[in-house]
Design a binder for these strands. Structure first.
Lengths: 136, 136
DNA sequence: CGCTTCATTGACGTTAACGTCAATACATGT
DNA sequence: ACATGTATTGACGTTAACGTCAATGAAGCG
């Protein structure tokens, strides 16, 4: 499969095998198939074999970032929908806007939590360094 | 139990029942007992009944914030240890400092992710609002 | 052409983080 | 004293997010 997909001279790789993506993102192929079964990604097929385009590669990036931020796959699924929402009709755009705003509120709340935690640890850090000076 | 623990005239409540805390933090008593079984909190007992002090109440706050940030209970357990570390010996303080720094790096990385996600959504928000103007 | 190497598809196992339920024990208001 | 309400301790169930394994198939290599 490598031979088929690999085009070393190209600037931007367009197609990816499941193994390539698993390797690049340091996840298992099982995980990728699992995400597909959940509808988070929708690779093409060549026969039975999956072939991934840039779109799904990007979605994988978003999925993994979502996970790092502590979101469930269901939440991430909602989040991904925002990226390919229909913008042709005003009602759809309006709906999208509401969902984006809801999401933004969540992320901003999380950011506040995060900043509080960071501030606390920085305080501990400062105190610990003080202690070390005294103890030296 | 309320009658025993409740001292309405006091400024700072010192003792809490499991139900009070469950209510205040909007979690189940089962969850609180589960956290105790994991060693995250260590309430006193009056007979068989749990009695919580401010310390464990604070720890509950930290646990829940940790969860909102997407950390596992094991990670949170590590995190909590930072709060009651031994600072009397320089080697302990040194060790604490290292762990605090590690934690800080994680949180800062997460903050970067978060800010990226927020920026993307803000861009979508801007674009959607543009669309709505055009479509109006 | 046989061998070896991925890829796919079930099916089943696993871990974390609780929920649910049953049996039992206190404690309180009337 | 009794009914009611709350607490505790198992034991078992559940969901999410994969891991593991077995059987099968297509593809390239010498």
């Amino acid at each position: 499969m490598d031979k088929i997909l690999a085009k070393p001279a190209e600037k931007k790789q367009e197609l990816f095998s499941i193994a390539e993506l698993a390797d690049e993102f340091d996840i298992s192929t099982r995980t990728i198939r699992f995400y597909e079964s959940k509808g988070l990604i929708t690779p093409d097929r060549v026969g039975t074999t999956r072939v991934f385009r840039r779109r799904d590669r990007t979605r994988l990036l978003l999925i993994l970032r979502g996970k790092r931020l502590g979101f469930s796959l269901n939440e991430i699924s909602d989040y991904l929908e925002l990226y390919d929402a229909d913008q042709t009709q005003a009602t759809q755009t309006q709906h999208l806007l509401e969902r984006v705003n809801t999401r933004l509120a969540m992320l901003r709340a999380q950011k506040t939590d995060l900043e509080t935690a960071i501030a606390e640890l920085e305080e501990m850090q400062g105190y610990a360094m003080e202690q070390l000076k005294k103890q030296a």
